[in-house]
Design a protein around this nucleic acid. Structure first.
Length: 636
DNA sequence: ATAGGGTTAG
């Protein structure tokens, strides 16, 4: 760096890097952040860029090119020589503070907001006067770093310098407080502001939704005098983040009514809501709209489209979107790998991973979750273990509890229950309900009551309100004929105040969603549905269908159990779909819980009998029934 | 100059 700098023919570097000006140090923290030259030269092609600056200065005899000079100054200012940087700027025909602001800005907007703070401290040691821009950039850096302490200092400075009536700065300050964990301070400032603009409101709405305060956000949204596309988008995205996709889509409809045009960010949020709900029709419409607007150039829009199609059961379309992308990020690859795994195409998932690494895309932790999921699906124990090890060894990714969950799932599904149990006990991090839940699931498949009881012991501590675990344990007892123990589990549930989530399934016919709950007798066409089921049942029995009554938890007569079984929500939804859609078209079902074993074998047979593809999205994966088989290969 | 967006095990 020194040699490159000397070629600039600028004054020699001063001996000391200490500024000797008088500063009011009272408002500064005792410890001033420091940095090293190497930090800053990271990603900085020093000799090349500096030489360019040099030749530019020589050729033009002036220094209008602010960007490279800013880089030079940034490096000098933060490393060895603040004064040296100032001397560079003394030769520039612009007010010094503008150049510092330019440096601050590029730090705050780049990948080193911490350096904006450091530079700000350097600036405060000089006798330069910060202006409103200076404050705004530093505040932005504080927001990004969630640095409330320095944020408050800058806020104090804004007041000291008399900038407090500047609306831009007020907004930035409100944002800084809200984002850095002081929402109440932000709110107080917001309430006191003599004037606000649409940005002020949007900031409050966005930050409130981030904190899960969706009602408060909506109140502000209702109150605001005028709304921009970003106001609508903030609210819609907020609902999606709070797990309320229906409300998000409802608001989107209102936005369309209001005549606002969704932008890329709106599209991403709405597509995420569609993915959550399996709302394929709306998803397709947004897809067309995105094409028309040219949003497909945007990687995030495409990634979300991929995710939406995957979660709506349209793997081929997701693949097409992926193939057509101009550039792909690790997110695109991970979404596709995870999607293939979710759809039972484990081999394809592994192939895609090889392709990805071959072209030099570095996988991340999410990529490996998809891969481990794929291995679990195919029972690839050895490969799964190898991926798990390779993740840390080759890519430096530290295994998260999610990865351990996948491994426990892989091991216990394949029957290595003891090993899975030991794996949990040897985890270097704290386990969670999902990890023990995976073991419990394996215990059910492989009928290991003893380990199941061990798992539930932990689950009662880690996730006592989750009804799913009680249900599985009760199932395990029931399947073993231990009805008393099964009843005890149900009593335990009652004592804990836990209720079993009622199962429901939905099917979309002509864009309308029809929901069914188990034993549903309320649907207007219920007689027709039952009749059609009876017809199907006859054909199924001819093909060897035997109702699997052990999935019925209650202790009752076999006949009665069969009747319960025949009214499971997914069966009702499929029958209704068959009645209401043209022959040979695919039927898409969504179920809030997991498909039971009996419905699974029934749907396999039905797909063969009626020659239809039946796609079921259950709580955690897809089942594509076709020609008597399921894409999950009965491994779920 | 200030606000916003994507993939995650059971």
């Amino acid at each position: 760096m020194m040699s490159s700098l000397s070629s600039l023919h600028l004054p020699p570097l001063p001996k000391s890097n200490q500024s000797r000006r008088n500063v009011d140090k009272s408002s500064l923290p005792t410890e001033i952040p420091t940095t090293t030259t190497t930090d800053l030269l990271h990603n900085f092609n020093t000799s090349f860029e500096l030489k360019q600056v040099h030749s530019h200065i020589i050729k033009t005899n002036q220094s209008y090119s602010i960007l490279p000079l800013t880089r030079v100054a940034s490096v000098c200012a933060l490393s060895s020589s603040f004064d040296y940087a100032r001397r560079i700027f003394e030769r520039v025909e612009q007010a010094e503070i503008l150049i510092w602001n330019s440096c601050l800005r590029s730090f705050a907007e780049g990948d080193s907001p911490i350096n904006a703070i450091r530079l700000f401290y350097r600036l405060r040691q000089s006798n330069l006067h910060p202006d409103t821009f200076t404050c705004s950039f530093v505040l932005k850096a504080c927001s990004l770093l969630l640095d409330l302490d320095n944020g408050k200092i800058v806020h104090g400075l804004v007041q000291k310098l008399g900038f407090q009536s500047d609306l831009f700065l007020q907004n930035t300050i409100v944002h800084m407080y809200a984002r850095s964990g002081a929402i109440n301070d932000a709110r107080r400032l917001f309430e006191k502001m003599p004037q606000r603009d649409v940005v002020t409101w949007n900031i409050m709405i966005t930050q409130l939704t981030k904190l899960g305060e969706i009602e408060k956000a909506h109140d502000l949204f209702d109150q605001m005098p005028e709304r921009s596309v970003r106001s609508w988008t903030a609210m819609i995205a907020g609902y999606v983040q709070c797990g309320k996709p229906k409300e998000a889509i409802h608001l989107f409809a209102q936005m369309e009514e209001a005549g606002e045009r969704p932008n890329e960010v709106t599209v991403v949020a709405v597509l995420a809501a569609c993915a959550d709900l399996g709302a394929l029709d709306l998803g397709r419409r947004i897809h067309e709209y995105s094409d028309a607007c040219g949003f497909r150039k945007n990687v995030r829009v495409c990634n979300t489209l991929i995710d939406m199609y995957i979660k709506c059961g349209c793997l081929e379309i997701a693949q097409r979107v992926f193939d057509e992308m101009e550039e792909r990020t690790v997110v695109s690859w991970s979404a596709m790998i995870g999607g293939l795994a979710m759809h039972g195409q484990g081999e394809e998932a592994l192939k895609l991973f090889s392709k990805m690494t071959q072209i030099g895309i570095r996988p991340n932790g999410v990529t490996f979750i998809g891969l481990l999921h794929a291995c679990s699906h195919m029972g690839l124990i050895t490969e799964g273990r190898e991926f798990f090890n390779s993740m840390t060894r080759d890519y430096g990714i530290v295994a998260q509890v999610e990865h351990y969950g996948c491994m426990v799932d892989l091991l216990s599904r394949s029957g290595f229950l003891q090993e899975a149990y030991e794996f949990i006990n040897n985890m270097p991090i704290k386990s969670n309900g999902v990890v023990w839940g995976a073991l419990l699931g394996g215990c059910r498949v492989h009928k290991n009551i003893e380990l199941a009881e061990e798992a539930i012991k932990h689950l009662l501590v880690l996730d006592p309100l989750n009804d799913g675990y009680y249900v599985v344990l009760s199932n395990i007892y029931a399947e073993a004929g231990r009805w008393e123990d099964a009843a005890k589990v149900r009593k335990l549930m009652r004592d804990q105040g836990v209720k079993k989530t009622p199962g429901w399934s939905s099917v979309t016919v002509d864009g309308e969603v029809h929901e069914f709950v188990a034993g549903d007798g309320t649907h207007p066409q219920v007689e027709e549905i039952y009749q059609k089921w009876d017809e199907l049942l006859e054909q199924m029995k001819l093909r060897g269908y035997i109702p699997d009554t052990k999935v019925v938890l209650l202790d009752m007569d076999e006949d009665k159990k069969e009747q319960v079984l025949y009214r499971h929500s997914e069966k009702l939804a499929v029958v209704f779909g068959l009645m209401k859609t043209p022959p040979r078209t695919a039927i898409r079902i969504m179920k809030n819980l997991r498909v039971c074993e009996d419905c699974h074998s029934a749907l396999k047979l039905i797909s063969e009998i009626v020659d239809r593809e039946i796609v079921v999205r259950d709580r955690n994966r897809f089942h594509c029934f076709k020609d008597g088989c399921c894409s999950c290969r009965d491994y779920w």
